[in-house]
Design a protein around this nucleic acid. Structure first.
Length: 421
RNA sequence: GGGGAGAUUCCAGAGCGGCCAAAUGGGACGGACUGUAAAUCCGUUGUUGUAAUGACUUCGAAGGUUCGAAUCCUUCUCUCCCCA
């Protein structure tokens, strides 16, 4: 059996841990948990990095718990946030919890004997606790001085922080305490921004129970240019196929920076050290990215989703018009499932007077939100139809692929599959 | 309760009666170069277009003053700071 801490170390996934953590893990099978707040209906690849901690924990023989923050999600974690957030309403939270739970189930083994994964929701123990009880049980044990010294709070002192968000660490601390007492969980993990919240928990456990609990964090993923990792084209990369299609997801990994590759391979794949180090030396970086993208798309989505994403990518980026025409229509529609599709009618097409109208209003502003934008982009040479650059003067005489499709390209990487029928 | 500062285009942040659709920076988007990379360079970044020193809508909200307001006045809403 591999050693958990060693495994994290060589993967560069260990940011910090409390003294004695390693000894505890070596001593016995240890239960550890990570919390996920239901702030959205899907987890994103930033969460995936911490999920991997749980995966490794289980693979090295320990027992992973995934906590869904039904209660903490109602409060809002001030960590890393520069301002107070709006509450999500309960309906949305409920929905998000269900969705996230489903996603988490994909990554962990819930049927592996003693170290089977388990899922808990902190709403289950918070719903019964009253304010007075909470103050007596939790508040009494921690000083304001201690709470204020936390980084997440310090950063907000200037701009303002509500009592509610200030209290967040108490809730998370109580989670840890509750899990320690009731589930024998001795370790809490998370991103490095969670250190303060986690240690509030170990502190609470120490003071209330004289117990020893441990904290372990992983570095927050950043891109080589210092930016937050996991954003793409203005949005998060979600694990939910309805929010980020497998094609987009696959493309995201294909487009990561070369310099980030070593880090990404270590954090997101389960490949062993030799394999990864061999990839480090590989000169053809795109080949490595294809492997990375394949591994992740297959694991997060499925083998067939990967196959489709791959086919779509090859056809869009490398295919010729002949390739399009040679592919069965049914197959085309299938593999372009993740590519934005737009449908317009014959008459709409016929009545389109200019290419500017076509790219904006006729295609329901899905390609360009305004005529001005379309015009601008045309001028800049950023639009192709059926792989040919077009300009504002180009007339609407296009040859349809398979008799009824047009392939519109905005920039190099944004494709639209327009059906006229 | 008293005193002060502020709300500007995606964000930060200038402008403080006409030259303001609004500086600058960031972001975003496009182009060139490449490898569907990074870096770099160039361009775009309210809508509309008879492309024009054009029209229209924008500078927290509503009114007002003025030939003319993001800029002045009144009321309102919100935010922050200091004192109690």
């Amino acid at each position: 059996m591999k050693n958990f801490v060693e495994e994290l170390k060589w993967r560069g996934m260990l940011h910090d841990m409390t003294p004695g953590t390693e000894a505890q893990l070596n001593k016995e099978m240890t239960a550890g948990y990570i919390g996920f707040d239901p702030t959205a209906s899907s987890l994103h690849i930033g969460n995936l990095a911490t999920i991997m901690l749980l995966v490794h924990l289980q693979r090295t023989g320990h027992k992973p718990f995934a906590l869904v923050g039904g209660a903490t999600g109602m409060i809002g974690d001030p960590s890393g946030k520069s301002e107070e957030r709006k509450f999500l309403d309960e309906e949305v939270l409920k929905h998000n919890q269900t969705c996230i739970k489903k996603q988490l189930e994909k990554f962990l083994d819930f049927d592996s004997g003693a170290n089977s994964a388990e899922m808990v929701n902190n709403y289950d123990w918070f719903k019964e606790i009253g304010f007075l009880q909470f103050l007596r049980e939790v508040g009494k044990h921690l000083t304001i001085n201690y709470m204020i010294s936390k980084d997440s709070v310090q950063k907000r002192l200037e701009t303002g922080i509500s009592f509610t968000e200030f209290s967040y660490q108490l809730l998370q601390g109580y989670d840890f305490y509750w899990l320690y007492k009731n589930k024998n969980i001795k370790l809490q993990m998370g991103g490095s921004d969670q250190w303060g919240n986690i240690t509030t928990g170990t502190e609470l456990i120490r003071r209330k129970e004289s117990g020893e609990a441990f904290a372990l964090t992983t570095p927050l993923l950043t891109r080589s240019d210092g930016q937050k990792f996991g954003k793409s084209e203005g949005g998060n990369v979600w694990l939910d196929a309805n929010m980020t299609s497998p094609y987009k997801f696959y493309q995201f990994w294909l487009n990561v920076a070369d310099d980030d590759l070593p880090k990404l391979l270590r954090v997101f794949t389960l490949w062993d050290r030799e394999t990864i180090e061999a990839f480090d030396k590989e000169a053809d970086k795109n080949k490595v990215k294809r492997e990375l993208a394949k591994d992740l798309t297959t694991r997060i989505h499925s083998e067939s989703d990967y196959q489709q994403a791959l086919k779509a990518s090859e056809l869009l980026f490398k295919g010729t018009l002949a390739d399009f025409n040679a592919t069965e229509e049914r197959i085309l529609n299938e593999i372009f499932e993740g590519v934005p599709q737009i449908e317009i009618s014959q008459s709409e097409y016929k009545n389109t007077s200019s290419i500017v109208d076509f790219l904006s209003v006729v295609t329901q502003n899905q390609i360009f939100t305004s005529k001005g934008e379309a015009r601008r982009m045309l001028k800049e040479g950023g639009v192709s139809i059926n792989k040919e650059k077009v300009s504002e003067a180009t007339s609407m005489q296009f040859e349809f692929l398979k008799g009824k499709y047009l392939l519109v390209q905005k920039g190099k990487k944004n494709y639209f599959w327009v059906k006229i029928g």
